[in-house]
Every structure is written in structure tokens, then in C-alpha cells.
Nucleic acid binder design. Structure first.
Lengths: 233, 233
DNA sequence: CGCCAGTTTGACCAAGATCAACGCAAGTGG
DNA sequence: CCACTTGCGTTGATCTTGGTCAAACTGGCG
């Protein structure tokens, strides 16, 4: 399922990485942590590989080096919910205590660093600054999660799709061109919609000259202001 | 708007309170914190009073002594989202950094303790055990928030209402009888539904002998198993 | 070329929203 | 003590958004 490159002292290379995501979920400035915890395993996963499964033990947490990871849960009747997409630089798998509540899967080919929770926990206890930074990160994540609850609970389909595009735009290179690594299905399960509704909404945006879609995975933000107006609510 | 009873050394009385909620939101074992930070202001609010508003500064956090608080946000067009209900023993207002993202309002008559964030932050930095407990609490809250995102993103109306009743049942006295302090409207805004849908769903549960509704604010769990079957998904 | 996976579009359907009464109990003022 | 109001809650009729089902389209690839 995955290729392990063995232990790997990555020195300072990771320290420069931007804000990320902790938790089930997100975490930003764990750079300090990463700098201290220099030993991690570099792992590589192919598209759709499972990085960990719901119910697995959670002795490790991960940082995305390249590629995109989806954190998701599959319901008994086939409904799927994607809690989050982790882009390069983001951390995931920190929040689960004991047992994974969500699974992590490679959206496309992915390289991650894996760290032992036990070791990092020790470091955090010894370093109040680190603890506070982790706390701040978790607060951000929490705010994030509540934002998603609002989106899913009270926003219409166009509002959700617009917000998604803007989110990805922010997290990506912020050029006018957006390369979405995930499928329409992934987007749908992230936004609490169906793939058809996502398609139709994107098509409507295209028709209204808000975006262009040169190919399914490439979106150009023709009229960012319009998108923001739709998303704001 | 509120009556302040002045500073109040509550000694150990709060230490015994059960798990609560941090954050925008929830926090459990802050009892240690509360025990250390013995000085708080005891405040009392009447039904529908605003405890703090969106955009206010967030120098304080709160612990509910009695009554119920709703943490909510009002959108420009009138849509409302309730992020959470805080019952007695729960903490709220910890997660907001800088400025309140949500407002806090009294669902019914409420008494809370208010604490200064600055003082408690210091305590946390000095005490790794406390820091870890706070972190654990936030992790729980995060898991909670993700659970709500799943509910709002992928569950049907009956599933949401059933889950709500079970949640309240768990957090309340766990007797077969449930006294809901909040209005149908509050429930709707918490579950991402309309008041009519909440009513109809409750009526359907009653018709199917899953619950009884002696009066609008009192629910009896006639068939808990059935509710769980509906809610599980 | 034909297949395959993913995307798009259309026709139809249904869950839940909206709109509108009506019910009901707790005030309130005459 | 009794109209009258007020604030919720409940129920019904109808409408809309987004879901479901089905078919066609597209680009890559053997």
C-alpha cells in the first residue's frame, strides 16, 4: 500500500512550511515542534491509498510534504463525509485520541512525514511556548470547524461552492488559476452536496462568467468579487 | 441588562462540576483551572439577554452555574446558526481570540461565573498538567465540532432531531424525562432545520410512540432504542 | 479504436422550506 | 373575572432546492 523510505533526518527543511492543519485536523505553526522532533518517517502513498483507517490506533501524526490528503468518514449506508482536505504543509491526525474517528486517504500521489505522538507530547509538556502555539493552532482549527458547521447548516449550494473555491484559492498559490486535486465527488462530500449539484453550480458560475473551467480540474477566477458576494451571506 | 454580584470567592464549590465545554465552546476538566483561579465575577442574566455580542473583545471566559446559554451567529439576511448550547457546568467563550466570532445569549435565566483570560493563561503556562488537560478538552471539542459538521452535512431531519434528543438526554440528568430549556426555534437553528420541520419530526416521533410530549418543553423517551436506531445512520 | 473513469446535462422526484392558519397558555388591562 | 393580546407551538397546503436516475460526453490509455 505504501512505500516507506525509512527514518529520515530532515533537518531544517520542514521548518519553513506555512500554516497547516492539526487534529482530525488542522494545525498551523507546529514548525517549532517539527524542528525539535527531527526524526520522522517519510512515507509515500498513491492516489486513493488509505493512510490510516477509522478505528486504527492513533500513535502517530502526519505532515503533508506534497500532494493532498482527505480526512473522511464513511457511513453505513454509503453516505460519505469529508471533514477536511490537507494540502502540503498541513498536519493531520493529531486530534484523534486513542482511536481514529476518521480515515485519511491520498487524494492524489502524496508524500508525508510521520511522527510519534508520544515523543512530541513530551516535548510539548516541556515547552510552554510550544504548548501555547499548539493551543492557538487548535483554536484556529476549532473556529474553522465551526465555520464549516455554519456552512453546512445554513448555506445554499451556490454559497457553499463559492466558499469552497475561495477557500482553495486562499490556501493555494493565490494566483487567478486554481488547480483542484480532488474529484467532483470529493468536493460534494466536503460540501454536503451531490456531485451533480456541484457540477451544475460550477456550470452556472461558468455561464455567469464568474469562473472559467478550461478543464475539470482547473478553475480560473474570472470575477473574484462576484464569488465573494455569493459566498458572504 | 445584567446584575453583577461583585467578586466572589467560590472556593471549592465549582470543582466538583462535571465535564463541560470550552471554546467558542466547550471545555471539560477546567475544574483544576477554576480551582486555581478562585476569583471570578458571578453574573446573572435574564432570558434572551446577551452575555456578549459578535465583535466584542474576548478578555473573559465563562462557566455556566445554572441555566442554559446559546452560542450563535446571525447572518445578514436573518438566517441564524446556533453553534452550541452550554448547560450548567459548561464553559464558553474560551476559544475566541481577540474578537468574538459568535454571540452568547441566555436561553433562560442564567447565572455564570466570569474569569479573566489573561490570568488563566498565565496559570496554564506555569502548569503543564493544566495545559494538557485544556488541550484534551479542546480535542474533545474539536471532535464534537466535526461530529456536528457530519450531522449538518449528511444527516436527514429525523436523524438530526433524534441525535439532538439523545445528546440532550446524555447531557441532562439521564432520566427518561427530558426538560428542554430552549425553544423549537433554537433547536431548528442548532440542527440546520426550520421550526416547522422540527415540530413535524417531533410529532412523527410521538405518533410512532418513540417519545411522548406532555408539554412542549418536556419530552419523555418512550423508546430509546428506536431513537438510537434513527440517529445512528 | 473501444473502454474506462470521471464529468456534465437533462428529466423527474422528494425532503424540507415557505406561507398561512389555527391552537393554546400566560400575561395584561379594563 | 373576563376580553384581548402576545409568544410559541402545531398543522396543513404548496413550492423550491437539491437529490435521484439516466444518458451522453470527454480525455486518457490499452
Amino acid at each position: 500500500m505504501y512505500r516507506q523510505f525509512g527514518n529520515f533526518d530532515h533537518g531544517n527543511e520542514l521548518v519553513a512550511f506555512g500554516p497547516g492543519h492539526v487534529g482530525i485536523v488542522q494545525s498551523g505553526q507546529l514548525n517549532a515542534l517539527v524542528a525539535l522532533e527531527r526524526i520522522g518517517s517519510r512515507l509515500s502513498f498513491a492516489r486513493n491509498d488509505e493512510i490510516y483507517a477509522e478505528g486504527d490506533g492513533s500513535e502517530c501524526w502526519y505532515k503533508v510534504i506534497s500532494g493532498t490528503v482527505r480526512i473522511c468518514k464513511l457511513l453505513a449506508d454509503g453516505r460519505r463525509h469529508i471533514a477536511e482536505f490537507c494540502l502540503s504543509g498541513d498536519c493531520f491526525g493529531i486530534a484523534d485520541a486513542g482511536e481514529r474517528l476518521y480515515s485519511a486517504e491520498a487524494v492524489n500521489d502524496v508524500i508525508v512525514m510521520r511522527f510519534q505522538r508520544k515523543a512530541t507530547d513530551r516535548l510539548i509538556d516541556q515547552n510552554p511556548l510550544l504548548a501555547r502555539s499548539l493551543r492557538d493552532t487548535m483554536l484556529r482549527d476549532l473556529a474553522n470547524a465551526h465555520g464549516r458547521a455554519l456552512l453546512l447548516g445554513r448555506m445554499t449550494a451556490p454559497e457553499r461552492v463559492a466558499a469552497f473555491l475561495l477557500e482553495m484559492f486562499e490556501r493555494h498559490d493565490r494566483t487567478k488559476t486554481l488547480d483542484l486535486p480532488m474529484s467532483r465527488n470529493d468536493i460534494a462530500d466536503y460540501l454536503g452536496l451531490t456531485i451533480e449539484t456541484v457540477c451544475r453550480t460550477l456550470s452556472a458560475f461558468k455561464r455567469d462568467a464568474v469562473i472559467a473551467i478550461p478543464n475539470p480540474h482547473r478553475i480560473e477566477l474570472t470575477d473574484r468579487g462576484a464569488l465573494e458576494t455569493i459566498a458572504e451571506a
